[in-house]
């Protein structure tokens, strides 16, 4: 799987799990290519996700929810994931 396929797959999994109002996934792999920590393959991605599902959850719970939704991708396809997970601001 190359990184654009990985992003497509992540979009599908996260949309399914959270019906987010905002979902952005950026491939950040180029910044980390070749360093010692990245030897295992897998991409670096930044995820920004806004969903009502995060209401009342602590940061660690939100991260866990995202990791859980991505499931097996965390084992091989994703080497590192930077996550911003928020509740969408309510319309006033």
């Amino acid at each position: 799987m190359d990184n654009s396929e990985r992003i497509e797959r992540m979009h599908a999994l996260l949309n399914d799990a959270f019906q987010p109002s905002t979902l952005e996934i950026v491939d950040d792999s180029h910044k980390h290519a070749g360093h010692e920590g990245a030897k295992g393959g897998g991409g670096h991605f930044n995820v920004t996700i806004y969903s009502a599902a995060f209401e009342g959850k602590t940061p660690i719970q939100r991260h866990r929810m995202v990791y859980d939704a991505l499931g097996d991708m965390m084992k091989s396809d994703i080497h590192a994931l930077s996550i911003v997970a928020k509740v969408p601001e309510q319309d006033s």
Binding site: H32, H35, G37, S82
Partner: peptide, 13 residues
């Protein structure tokens, strides 16, 4: 972490 605080091997660490 990956590496040490003096010689980290990953930006996140």
């Amino acid at each position: 972490m990956k590496g040490t605080p003096q010689m980290p091997q990953c930006g996140f660490s």
